[in-house]
């Protein structure tokens, strides 16, 4: 079982666009799954690939671009080394996700949906991971980290940036509730 919040790779990388189109029998209804597969293979949607897909399916290029920019999970730029998915759902918000978001943006000079200048992180705030009991929750490279505070989140990411791998100690941090501090 996987534990990723990203588009799961349901298939092995196909031989180019033809393979992906064949996988769905060339069914134009499956345009979005095909694009998901391209992103799973390449990490983003390269322009040439979309162009090829357009020609192969006889679907206007403009329509494919429209879809690529409408759905939030599609990326048109190559992603960074690590992918941060920060939940901005209601519960996470109530428990301070927006402060964590601001801190990450400040700390790593990265905007929502963007990649940090050093190419280390791609930062994707999403609307709800449905893991509300863990709020505030963040997924880094497929691994869930719950009960975060600003410091825990930033420190975790710094460690990842330095070493490349999150350590066991930084997982499931927190115990201290933000609420208990307030008067």
């Amino acid at each position: 079982m996987r534990e990723t919040a990203e588009t799961p790779k349901l298939f092995a990388p196909a031989e180019g666009i033809a393979g992906i189109v064949d996988r769905y029998g060339g069914d134009r209804d499956m345009l979005i799954p095909m694009m998901q597969d391209i992103q799973a293979d390449f990490g983003y949607l390269p322009r040439e690939m979309l162009k090829e897909l357009s020609e192969s399916l006889c679907v206007p290029f403009s329509r494919i671009y429209s879809i690529a920019t409408f759905y939030a999970s599609f990326r048109l730029e190559p992603p960074g080394e690590h992918r941060i998915t920060l939940c901005m759902g209601t519960v996470c918000f109530l428990k301070g996700a927006d402060r964590i978001s601001r801190a990450i943006q400040r700390e790593f000079s990265v905007g929502p949906g963007g990649t940090s200048p050093d190419g280390k992180f791609t930062f994707c705030p999403v609307n709800c991971l449905g893991a509300c009991a863990l709020a505030p929750v963040m997924v880094v490279d497929g691994e869930y980290h719950g009960g975060l505070t600003v410091d825990l989140a930033v420190n975790l990411l710094r460690k990842i940036a330095d070493a490349g791998k999150p350590t066991e100690a930084t997982r499931n941090g927190k115990k201290k509730e933000r609420g208990s501090k307030k008067k």
Binding site: P60, F61, R63, Y65, T69, F70
Partner: peptide
């Protein structure tokens, strides 16, 4: 021609 489309949301 389908040269243009709605982009973003």
């Amino acid at each position: 021609a389908s040269a243009i489309s709605m982009v973003g949301r």
